[in-house]
Nucleic acid binder design. Structure first.
Length: 587
RNA sequence: GCCCACAUAGCUCAGCCGGUAGAGCACGCCCUUGGUAAGGGCGAGGUCACCAGUUCGAAUCUGGUUGUGGGCUCCA
């Protein structure tokens, strides 16, 4: 392969190198505009690059074009990038005015030398590599300004970060910008309002969701499906209260380990109560109402449990990050030797659920012991081991996420990928030896003695809120027929067709479909347009011809005209539409 | 919580340098009964997020509060 060929190929390292070089050029530009600039770090990222700066004043969006202009000049000058190696002492002198760089130099492993990259007059501490010359940096664009803590530590100073991206080709950049626009078009907050699915209002409180009838319909459909599948797979459905006495949360360890997420206690008759942040203690108390034989295990209790967690104001985001949400939770009480089998089953259920909702791509993470944890290291290792074994047994590829577990146990997280390839937190499976111990949860073994029970916490969708956010964006609001809140709209052409329209609608409705009649005295064109914008799967146009022949002219959301179909044909078309989705999941 | 930006009618937005608000869509009424993505007319609707301050006068300037957006930290 020739040198030229190598450079034109879409090599991921090449792209990274370009972006990293672009970040240097950006830093150069910023430093030349703001002479007092203190440099942080400037790496390439998955879809671009950034650089962190400490500046004499705050950046505004108007600064970006100016910086970009400067960058273009540097790229056009096509100056070479030069690597230099110097000793740490020399580096300390070179960056004497750069406190953040000095800190980085001090933190380098005991290497004798450090490498520098220089282009034009700009020198940066950097491992490299870089492109040969600035002219090799392809089309780029600065995207946004953000605050970022130095080294991601909220106790350290906040620097100003500029995000940008660069590509090898103009098409690459265009595609990226197009994707950004597409993501905006699919934004569940926008679609939530446009499709009248839900709202979050200042008056009600940040992070608290009001589910409008249409959003509730989607949610109900998901919940019904979820419950049925759980019953089929040996779960029992339970309900528990929204508040519990504070003592329960002290026993569970939440009071100690999960304090920053708890809402303040409320006083009820002189007793402290706390809104539940999790469902587990309720299930544990229920389990403990009587003795359980090993013969009963595993016991699988599922609850669509609404929990409340205090989330810092800056992290709230539409339905994806809220303060009150409903987990599709379940707790499995079992013997230790049953854990692996149960996890295998849960993974199977989780994969089934994801497929059912149209997600085929996902990524599995194994999160291990965090800094703040309950229980012994020994138990943690045991639990982690079991999760790992189950994953290996199913031959699933996974990554380890060190320190990301919950305080009471390690977990498997499944991140699903939506239509745009973005990852969403979905199913979570956690093994927990700690809560059973704290609450003294046991079963009676074959030997007639008490044994500690093992507990698995799991969700297979995550939460109704976040899952709906993901669904909306995945489908861009055009839900598959079985989930669509309104599955069909009957559109009478003139008022004299209303009777027939109502009759048709009620017959389809009695077959179990959600169909409405658009009875307004508006033109058919308008009704079609609105049904289309509302992403209604089936539009059933009825006029003189249809009323006479007992048919409906079927227009699909895709714009396809199916022609005149009889009532039976319409119903069977809808039925097969739904069946196709079911098969997809079970196959 | 932190950094930056933003907050005008239900929605999307205009409102230059301070002189008490405007469009399109949506909504209501009327006319139109029309064959596959917006028929026409009239009308109603805003203490310009909230609270202070500067000023003869604030949607417009200043400060604070609340909320939202993009990030950081954190997470179902």
């Amino acid at each position: 392969m020739s040198e030229q060929e190598r450079n034109t190929l879409s090599d991921p390292n090449r792209l990274q190198t370009i972006r990293h070089s672009a970040s240097h050029v950006m830093a150069d530009a910023v430093a030349s505009i703001f002479p007092e600039t203190k440099l942080g770090i400037g790496p390439s990222t998955e879809d671009g690059f950034y650089y962190d700066f400490e500046l004499s004043r705050s950046l505004t969006p108007e600064d970006l074009p100016v910086i970009e202009e400067k960058m273009r000049a540097i790229v056009a000058a096509d100056v070479p990038f030069a690597r230099r190696e110097i000793t740490r002492e020399e580096a300390r002198r070179e960056f004497a005015e750069q406190p953040y760089k000095l800190e980085l130099i001090d933190d380098l492993e005991d290497q004798e030398t450090v490498s520098l990259y220089q282009h034009d007059g700009f020198v940066d501490l950097c491992r490299g590599p870089h492109v040969e010359r600035t002219g090799e940096i392809g089309p780029f664009k600065l995207l946004s300004i953000a605050g970022a803590y130095w080294r991601g530590d909220e106790r350290r100073p906040m620097l100003q970060r500029i995000y940008g991206t660069a590509f090898e080709t103009q098409e690459g950049l265009d595609k990226f910008l197009h994707n950004l626009a597409e993501a905006e078009r699919r934004d569940h907050r926008r679609l939530g309002r446009e499709l009248d699915l839900f709202s979050i209002q200042e008056e009600a409180g940040p992070g608290l969701v009001l589910w409008h009838p249409k959003g509730s319909m989607v949610r109900k459909t998901i919940e019904d499906f979820w419950k049925e599948e759980h019953l089929r797979r040996g779960y029992d459905i339970v309900y528990t209260p929204h508040i519990f006495k504070a003592g329960l949360w002290k026993t569970s360890g939440h009071w100690e380990m999960y304090r920053e997420n708890l809402f303040s206690p409320m006083d009820v008759d002189g007793q402290e109560y706390i809104v539940k942040p999790m469902n587990c203690p309720g299930h544990i108390l229920m389990y403990k109402t009587r003795l359980h034989s090993y013969r009963e295990l595993p016991i699988r209790w599922a609850e669509l449990g609404t929990v409340y967690r205090y989330e810092r104001s800056g992290v709230l985001h539409g339905l994806a990050r809220v303060r009150g949400f409903t987990q599709d939770d379940a707790h499995i009480f079992c013997r230790h030797e049953q854990i692996e089998e149960e996890i295998v089953d849960v993974l199977g259920l989780a994969r089934f659920m994801l497929r059912s909702f149209g997600f085929d791509e996902y990524q599995i993470m194994l999160s291990t012991r965090p800094d703040k944890y309950a229980g012994t290291i020994d138990k943690w290792e045991q639990a982690t081991d079991m999760l790992e074994k189950a994953l290996q047994r199913l031959g699933l590829v996974y990554e380890v996420d060190p320190g990301e577990g919950v305080f009471y146990g390690p977990k498997i997280d499944i991140k699903l990928q939506d239509a745009l390839g973005r990852a969403w937190q979905g199913p979570t499976i956690q093994v927990d030896f700690n809560l059973p111990e704290r609450f003294d949860v046991t079963y009676i073994g074959e030997d007639g003695r008490e044994h500690p029970v093992a507990m698995i916490h799991r969700t297979v969708l995550g939460s109704m809120e976040r899952f709906l956010a993901c669904l909306i964006e995945h489908y861009a609001g055009a839900f598959p027929l079985w989930l669509a809140p309104v599955q069909g709209v009957v559109i009478p052409i003139a008022d004299r067709h209303l009777d027939y329209a109502y009759r048709l609608a009620s017959e389809i409705r009695s077959a179990g479909y959600r169909v409405q009649v658009d009875s307004r005295s508006e033109r058919m064109n308008l009704k079609i347009r609105e049904a289309q914008l509302q992403k209604v799967p089936y539009m059933l146009v009825v006029g003189d011809k249809e009323a006479e022949s007992d048919t409906a002219s079927v227009r699909l959301r895709s714009g396809e005209d199916q022609g005149k179909l009889s009532l039976e044909e319409v119903k069977s078309m809808m039925a097969s539409d739904i069946r196709a989705f079911e098969h997809r999941a079970r196959s």
